[in-house]
Design a binder for these strands. Sequence first.
DNA 1: TATTTTGCAACATCGAAAGTTACGTGATAG
DNA 2: CTATCACGTAACTTTCGATGTTGCAAAATA
Lengths: 156, 156
Amino acid sequence: MDARLSRMLHLLIHMGRMAGPLTSEAAATMLGTNPVVVRRTMSGLRDAGYVRSVKGHGGGWSLIRDLDDITMLDVHRALGENRIFALGPADPTATCLVEQAVNASLEGALREAEALLLRRLNDVSVASIAADFDHRFAESPDIGETEASGRRTSSD
Amino acid sequence: MDARLSRMLHLLIHMGRMAGPLTSEAAATMLGTNPVVVRRTMSGLRDAGYVRSVKGHGGGWSLIRDLDDITMLDVHRALGENRIFALGPADPTATCLVEQAVNASLEGALREAEALLLRRLNDVSVASIAADFDHRFAESPDIGETEASGRRTSSD
DNA sequence: TATTTTGCAACATCGAAAGTTACGTGATAG
DNA sequence: CTATCACGTAACTTTCGATGTTGCAAAATA
């Protein structure tokens, strides 16, 4: 299962709530993975202009675009237009006419589903996911729903 | 890439146009694969009641349902409710609230796309794919579009 | 200059589909 | 009744992409 989109969204939201840059090491700890994997995956977001990386002391990853201006689709695309479906034709270039007919039907259905998925990913900004997190945080049993809480400890 | 749905559709259509049963050996040749793989995959269709298998001389696989009564979705389901997306959340049971918010958005989009795909798969009977093949066959340059053709050689 | 942090290459690991081998079972031909 | 055909299934290997890991170079800062 390709979890890169999920992971990058997670990191972007964290980065949106941090003062300084986030090191690959810290990010890897958050995700329960490896710093090299973080760099590898984040490099796509850097090339797409959503984050930047700085070397050396005090370095790490920082946002250079507002989370309002980044959609889930943007992140997906920045990761390299990866395969969406685990399902597909045996041979997309088949010469057998039966197989071509099968491919036409199957690919048609997949195309429609993919188009819908991409529309939905495009509908959701990373900022709106962050807002959803705020909602969940405010309603979390650790805090209670009262407005008596000035203290907000990190929840993850 | 999981090509089982594609392959089983291919075989079902062939079986619908054959007089006798289709051996796993012949099916494997059609698909460019192995008889054991054919048996393994077809066993799901047998258990679902779409085909039957007969051992021994003159045995093989035969349809026991009209292709009109089998949809692409039926075949997909008979293969065991396999994974549809190559994409998904890093941890569907995350306790981190940020990750939960990410999962909610991502899973929502995936759910919608999956629902559409299943609807589309359900819209298409295997018989209609076979009919599409007939159309392609009639219009294939090997035959020409004239009605002068009584002869129909196998096209694959 | 020592330390921190990214960049990147070159592996190893993992999981699911697919391929392969081997042997058992049942059915039919002769 | 025996040889052969064809499926049933277990067990193993292969393949492919994502992921994990190690090692080292390069850059930036204290």
